[in-house]
Lab assay of single mutants.
Amino acid sequence: MEVRTIKVFTTVDNINLHTQVVDMSMTYGQQFGPTYLDGADVTKIKPHNSHEGKTFYVLPNDDTLRVEAFEYYHTTDPSFLGRYMSALNHTKKWKYPQVNGLTSIKWADNNCYLATALLTLQQIELKFNPPALQDAYYRARAGEAANFCALILAYCNKTVGELGDVRETMSYLFQHANLDSCKRVLNVVCKTCGQQQTTLKGVEAVMYMGTLSYEQFKKGVQIPCTCGKQATKYLVQQESPFVMMSAPPAQYELKHGTFTCASEYTGNYQCGHYKHITSKETLYCIDGALLTKSSEYKGPITDVFYKENSYTTTIK
């Protein structure tokens, strides 16, 4: 009895394709271990004539594949690729409408935090270190965002349907971005203890939790000093293409032309909904596939993004 075979390709990165001759009487799992086709788990399936010449994702289970996976995804987590594939199996079914010149995501599976993050990423200057993220990001900007969303979920250790947080998501993504040249110098002034300067680099240099107003941050924000008295913390120097200011959701007025974009969060910790506000020729609110415009805006804002380049204080 002759062994019926077909020729397929296996890959971990969709760049390096490895030619395989597979036995049609055995499952993919018996031949390769966990195997995925377009995100779908085909591990328990036997090869079919229609699979001839198709590319299958496999887990990096030998040295060659491990090197290829690390170079593309910059992670050695053995569960990463499987999590990416199972997320992709959902995100490829989502709709990605162009809204006001940006790629958004039609609401499904509690994905409003991903839509808000995706919209924000198209408006701030950011370059990702893992080629996987950078490639998928370019495709997302062009309207094909399924891979990018699935990668975000995998890097953030999230599953489809789980509630997510924009600030946490951005923080994970910033860790995989090139923020080497970003720098922030802060000064804390206390009447009792004097003053202390701190220099922050990388992710810490672009994120701040405690106030939404970048102007206020430049002037000074009140913080408790270690001595128990009130101290003032203010920005001395900022070198970065953008800054992200966050605070627990509270009524906040966004003035046209003073910011790049913002995240609105309605609801409580267990259950809520994100919308995205962007400042173009007027203010726009993007909620999944829905767009509304207004000249002014007041609502429960939790993150505001500002364009920056270089700032030095005039406070002496």
Rank of each mutant, 00 (worst) to 15 (best):
residue 89 N to M: 08
residue 81 L to Y: 08
residue 299 G to H: 00
residue 303 D to F: 01
residue 47 P to D: 02
residue 129 N to R: 14
residue 100 N to D: 12
residue 132 A to T: 04
residue 159 T to E: 10
residue 81 L to W: 08
residue 124 I to N: 04
residue 38 D to I: 10
residue 257 G to T: 05
residue 157 N to E: 08
residue 38 D to P: 07
residue 186 L to S: 10
residue 136 A to I: 03
residue 223 I to Y: 11
residue 148 F to T: 04
residue 12 V to N: 12
residue 55 T to R: 11
residue 307 K to I: 11
residue 235 L to N: 01
residue 100 N to F: 07
residue 44 K to M: 13
residue 263 S to V: 08
residue 305 F to P: 01
residue 205 A to C: 03
residue 273 H to M: 00
residue 122 Q to F: 02
residue 282 T to S: 13
residue 25 S to E: 09
residue 201 K to W: 15
residue 193 C to E: 04
residue 165 D to M: 07
residue 104 S to F: 04
residue 263 S to T: 11
residue 32 F to V: 13
residue 302 T to Q: 00
residue 221 V to N: 04
residue 222 Q to L: 12
residue 177 A to Y: 01
residue 194 G to Q: 02
residue 118 L to W: 03
residue 123 Q to T: 06
residue 137 Y to A: 08
residue 233 K to Q: 14
residue 70 F to Q: 11
residue 167 R to C: 00
residue 11 T to F: 06
residue 178 N to R: 08
residue 65 L to W: 07
residue 210 G to V: 00
residue 192 T to D: 14
residue 275 K to W: 00
residue 13 D to G: 06
residue 77 D to F: 04
residue 223 I to K: 05
residue 122 Q to C: 06
residue 212 L to C: 08
residue 178 N to G: 07
residue 251 Q to K: 11
residue 163 L to V: 12
residue 194 G to C: 00
residue 196 Q to L: 10
residue 265 Y to T: 00
residue 230 Q to T: 13
residue 27 T to Y: 10
residue 129 N to L: 07
residue 89 N to D: 12
residue 55 T to V: 12
residue 28 Y to T: 04
residue 160 V to Y: 01
residue 277 I to V: 10
residue 121 L to M: 09
residue 242 F to T: 01
residue 141 R to E: 08
residue 241 P to V: 00
residue 139 R to N: 11
residue 70 F to R: 08
residue 135 D to Y: 09
residue 273 H to E: 01
residue 264 E to M: 10
residue 159 T to K: 15
residue 162 E to L: 00
residue 272 G to I: 02
residue 84 Y to W: 02
residue 84 Y to T: 03
residue 237 Q to A: 13
residue 183 K to S: 09
residue 179 L to S: 04
residue 175 Q to C: 08
residue 9 F to I: 09
residue 158 K to T: 03
residue 215 E to K: 07
residue 220 G to C: 03
residue 243 V to Y: 01
residue 190 C to G: 02
residue 98 Q to D: 13
residue 191 K to Y: 09
residue 121 L to D: 01
residue 66 R to D: 08
residue 109 D to E: 10
residue 264 E to Y: 00
residue 255 K to C: 10
residue 130 P to F: 03
residue 3 V to Q: 13
residue 73 Y to G: 03
residue 66 R to G: 10
residue 27 T to M: 13
residue 52 E to S: 12
residue 124 I to T: 03
residue 229 K to H: 10
residue 298 K to S: 12
residue 203 V to Q: 08
residue 38 D to L: 09
residue 99 V to Q: 08
residue 162 E to S: 08
residue 231 A to Q: 01
residue 201 K to S: 14
residue 128 F to S: 02
residue 149 C to F: 01
residue 47 P to E: 04
residue 63 D to H: 08
residue 193 C to N: 06
residue 300 P to Q: 10
residue 190 C to P: 01
residue 270 Q to D: 13
residue 307 K to N: 13
